[in-house]
Design a protein around this nucleic acid. Structure first.
Length: 325
DNA sequence: GTTCTAGAAC
DNA sequence: GTTCTAGAAC
C-alpha cells in the first residue's frame, strides 16, 4: 500500500478544495496535480481522481437506509464517473471539476460538454470483436487468413452469403465502420479496393461466369472496417433471412467505388442506416421481381438469367458482369 | 454476426 | 404445415 506524507498531500488537498468543496455519492472529481506537488515531481503522478461510493452507514451523510437497489445504482454511477473521469485525462488538456455519472448514455459527462463529449460511435458487444482481434493479431489466426499484408488481411467470411465471399480487413486501430472513414483514409480505401479486386480476378480466372461486387455495409455488425468481396450467385445456406439478403442488395450495401468517390468529393461516405432498407420486400437483384420469402427468392435466383440492371453495371460496381444488349 | 424460442401470420 | 418477427443470449 502506498503511504503519503503530509508534505506530499497538502498541495493535493489545496488543489482538490479548489475543484470541489464536497462530493456526492456516485460523483468523481479529477484533480490535476500542481507542479509543486511532490507526488507530481517525484512520482510522476499527473492526476488524482476522488470518487465517492454509496453509503449505508446511518452515522454518515447521504445514508441510503439499506436501500440495496439504490445502492447498486449509485455504485454503477460511481464506477462510470471514475472511468469517465479517467478517460477525460487522456483525451483532453483540461478537466472539469465535477464529473457526474450519466445514467444511460455512454461517454457523456455533465459540465463543459463542448470539451468532454465522449465517443459518439456505437459501442460493440463482445461477439462483434472477432474481426478486430484478427486485425490486431493476425499471427494468432494464420489458419483463417488467405493473405496478410502490413495494412490489411484477407479472409473468408465465416458465414459466407454466396459461393465466394471474402473480407478485406483493415488493420488500422480505431477504424471500425464507414462513419469513421474520412479524407485521410482515401488511399487506404483505394488499396482495399485493389486488394479485393485482385481476389475477384483470381476467382474469375478459375470461373469466368462469376460476377462480383465489392462494398461495405452502411452499419456493420462487426467491428473493424472490412470490405466485402461477394459473388452475385448468393448460393449459400448461410443466407437465411431478409436482413441477410437486403444487407447486400439494397442501398444499405455501399459499393466500394461509390464510397471512394464520396470520400474524394465530400470527405465522408453516405450511410444508409435506416432500418427500412433491411426490412424491405425481397426483390431479385437481376430482374427486380418481388418474392414473398427467402426460400422462394432463392429458388428464383438460382434460375434467373436476366441481365444485371444498368445501375449495377455502371462505373465498375459489378466486376466483369456479362454484357447485355 | 449467430442461435434459440415463442407467438403471430400465412 | 411453413415462414416471419422480435427478443434474449452469446
Amino acid at each position: 500500500m502506498l503511504q503519503f506524507s503530509l508534505q506530499q498531500v497538502l498541495p493535493l488537498e489545496t488543489a482538490t478544495k479548489e475543484r470541489a468543496k464536497s462530493l456526492l455519492p456516485g460523483h468523481a472529481v479529477v484533480v490535476p496535480l500542481p507542479s509543486d506537488s511532490p507526488l507530481y515531481t517525484r512520482e510522476g503522478v499527473s492526476h488524482v481522481i476522488h470518487v465517492l461510493g454509496p453509503n449505508m452507514n446511518p452515522q454518515r451523510p447521504n445514508s441510503l437506509n439499506n436501500d440495496y437497489t439504490k445502492g447498486c445504482s449509485i455504485l454503477r454511477e460511481t464506477y462510470t464517473s471514475l472511468f469517465t473521469g479517467f478517460l477525460s485525462i487522456g483525451t483532453h488538456d483540461e478537466t472539469v471539476a465535477d464529473i457526474s455519472a450519466p445514467s444511460s448514455t455512454y461517454g457523456k459527462v455533465t459540465g463543459d460538454k463542448s470539451k468532454l463529449e465522449g465517443p459518439t460511435s456505437k459501442s460493440w458487444g463482445s461477439w462483434a470483436q472477432a474481426l478486430y482481434h484478427i486485425a490486431m493479431h493476425p499471427e494468432k489466426h494464420k489458419d483463417k487468413l488467405l493473405e496478410v499484408l502490413d495494412d490489411f488481411v484477407v479472409l473468408n467470411d465465416l458465414y459466407p452469403k454466396a459461393c465466394k465471399h471474402l473480407l478485406v480487413l483493415a488493420r488500422h486501430e480505431g477504424l471500425d465502420c464507414l462513419a469513421d472513414v474520412h479524407e485521410e483514409h482515401l488511399q487506404l480505401l483505394m488499396t482495399m479496393h485493389a486488394v479485393g479486386l485482385k481476389w475477384a480476378e483470381k476467382f474469375l480466372h478459375e470461373d469466368s461466369s462469376m460476377v462480383f461486387r465489392l462494398g461495405y455495409h452502411s452499419v456493420p455488425s462487426m467491428r473493424q472496417l472490412h470490405l466485402h468481396v461477394i459473388s452475385q450467385d448468393f448460393n449459400s445456406n448461410h443466407l437465411k433471412n431478409k436482413k441477410h439478403w437486403n444487407s447486400f442488395n439494397t442501398a444499405f450495401f455501399r459499393d466500394s467505388v461509390d464510397v471512394i468517390e464520396e470520400i474524394k468529393n465530400h470527405g465522408k461516405a453516405t450511410i444508409k442506416d435506416e432500418d427500412c432498407w433491411l426490412s424491405m420486400e425481397l426483390r431479385c437483384h437481376r430482374c427486380r421481381s418481388a418474392h414473398p420469402n427467402i426460400p422462394r427468392l432463392k429458388s428464383h435466383i438460382s434460375i434467373c438469367q436476366a441481365p444485371f440492371p444498368d445501375a449495377l453495371l455502371e462505373n465498375g460496381r459489378l466486376v466483369l458482369a456479362p454484357k447485355h444488349n
